[in-house]
Every structure is written in C-alpha cells, then in structure tokens.
C-alpha cells in the first residue's frame, strides 16, 4: 500500500512532466505554422520542375523530337538503368531528436523491411543517413552507413540537399571525376522519408531517386516547346537540379512532419498526464481520509477503554 508521501511525490512528478510536455507541444505548434508554410511554398517549384523534367524524360522514351534518338538510358548517365544485382544506397531521412511519437520509429521499421527485401533479392545495401535518430538505430543493428548528415533545418536545407545530391550522384556515376572517394559505387539510389500528408498523418515513403524516373506518366498532348539547346544538353543541366529538388522536397516534408508529429505526441502526453493526476489526486484524498478515520477510531477506542 502506497503511503501518502509517496503518492504526493508521484503527483508532483507527473505535474512536472506535464509542464514539459505541454511546453514542447506549444513550441511545436508555433514552429509548425512556419514549417508548414515553407513546405507549401516549396511545392510549386518542386512540382513544376518535376513535370518539366518528367516530360523531357518521357519524350526520350517515345523517341520523337529532335536529337539523338538512341536508347532511353544513353541520354544521360543519371538515367542509366543497370540490370542485375548490385549495390543500392538508401538516403534515410529522419529527425535529430525523438519525443515525436512514431515519427522516427515508423520510418526505421519501413526501411528495415525494405532492406530485408533488397537483401533477399541479392542486392548489397548501404545507407546514407540524414538525421541522428536514423543513424543511431542502424548503427545499433550493424548496418553499414557510408555517410551521415545531421537533420536539416529550414535554414540550411537547400545547402544540405545540394551536398547529399552531389554525394549520391557521385556514387551513382561511380565517382568518375576525382575517383578516390570513400563513397562506394551504387547501381540504384532510394530515399526514405516521412511524407507530410497533414498535421495528424505522416506517411513513411521509400522512393527511387536514381536512375531518375518521371513520377507520373505525363500524357502531354501538347507539342513540347522549343528546347534550347537540344534536349540532351537540357537534361544534362536539369537532371541534377531535379534530383536536388526531390531531396529538398523530402527534407521539407520531414521537417514539417517531425514538428507535427511532436505536437500530436506531446499533446496526447499532456492529456494523459492530466488524466493520471486526476486519478492520483482522487486516490490520495481517499487514502488521506482513510488515515484520518483510522486515527479517530484509535483515539475513540482508547478513550472507551479508559472509561471501561
């Protein structure tokens, strides 16, 4: 049976925890607006870029238009599909900090499943982690991590996307320029991130980054506009930018998602704390009353005995 002091301490401790969780929830709520606006502001750029590059890539497949109508893969090294087994790298984008509900854990689990499948198919898998939580998780399980970056912030996101893009493009093309890198050559690049669907839902997603594929089949009935210089040169210029842009979009989603997940998680933690405090207080009062009654009974009993 818990004594009164223990219960009192417990209540104080839960109250303190609630102060922390509700502060975190409020901070997240304030930051969420900004992150959400940033993610939304970035979408027009990313979507338009994706559409244009997508329709260029798609037009390669159909073989019409000017330029060298060779194999679809030959137009640019970043489009080259390599068949057979090989090595794949996953850009694993998580947060630096926890206390965000299932945000990091869900993505880690999804990636573990994905790695298992790739291994069964006979591929070697390495990771490039962005965000400390992902690194911590996979270091623990002994997965090979070739590079690590801390989670991006709204301030350094563009630069970080550029850095990661440069690294994976070097890995994919086999580090032709320069050569001696610690980055191994890979045949495919995936990226895993939490898609910010809305404030309540973040969806773990794993998508192909390289070889570059157009997301949706753009059935553009319009003729392609004049391209200057030719299509291949244009692709050479735009593909690296499109790769960067996809990473940027993933970062934006991840940042907004993390904050939203933390807000939701801390909100419900605060609610749970309130509930717990209510129950404990009730229990405390009941115990206190019981103790008083017991003491009274003892006093009365003692007095009666003396009378007798």
């Amino acid at each position: 049976m818990a004594n009164l002091k223990e219960i009192r301490n417990r209540i104080t401790s839960v109250k303190n925890t609630r102060k922390i969780t509700s502060a975190m929830s409020r901070i997240a709520a304030a930051r969420l607006v900004k992150a959400q606006q940033a993610a939304m502001g970035a979408r027009p750029y990313g979507e338009r870029l994706d559409q244009v590059v997508g329709s260029l890539v798609a037009s390669l497949g159909s073989g019409e238009g000017e330029g060298d109508a060779g194999e679809a893969g030959a137009a640019h090294p970043l489009l080259l599909k390599r068949s057979g087994n090989g090595r794949v790298v996953i850009v694993h984008i998580t947060a630096d900090r926890g206390l965000a509900g299932g945000f990091n854990a869900n993505l880690n689990r999804a990636v573990v499943g994905f790695i298992r499948k790739e291994r069964e198919a006979g591929n070697d898998v390495v990771l490039l982690t962005v965000g400390k939580k992902g690194r911590g998780f996979f270091q623990h399980s002994g997965q090979k991590i070739v590079r690590h970056h801390d989670a991006p912030t709204l301030g350094d996101l563009v630069v970080k996307a550029k850095m990661v893009a440069a690294e994976i493009m070097a890995m994919f093309t086999g580090g032709k320029e320069g050569g001696d890198t610690e980055l191994p050559q890979v045949d495919r690049v995936y990226f895993a991130y939490n898609y910010f669907k809305n404030v309540l839902t973040q969806q773990p997603k794993i998508e192909v980054l390289l070889p570059f594929e157009s997301r949706e089949i753009v059935n553009d009935e319009r003729v392609l506009p004049v391209l200057e210089p030719g299509r291949d040169a244009l692709l050479g210029h735009l593909l690296p930018i499109a790769v960067e842009s996809r990473l940027q979009q993933a970062f934006f989603n991840s940042i907004a998602g993390e904050i939203a997940a933390r807000r939701t998680a801390m909100d419900s933690a605060s609610d749970n704390a309130t509930q717990l405090i209510r129950e404990l207080t009730l229990f405390y009062n009941r115990e206190r009353q019981a103790a008083i009654t017991k003491e009274l009974m003892e006093i009365i009993g003692g007095a009666e005995a003396l009378k007798g």
Binding site: K162, M163, A166, E167, M169, A170, G175, K176, E177, G178, G179, D180, T181, E182, L183
Partner: peptide, 12 residues
Amino acid sequence: SIDAAEHRKLVT
C-alpha cells in the same frame, strides 16, 4: 585531394 562531390559543390 578533395572528392568529386566536394569539388562539384565548390564550383557551384
């Protein structure tokens, strides 16, 4: 002494 990724980054 710098790798290809680093070089590309510096040029941009």
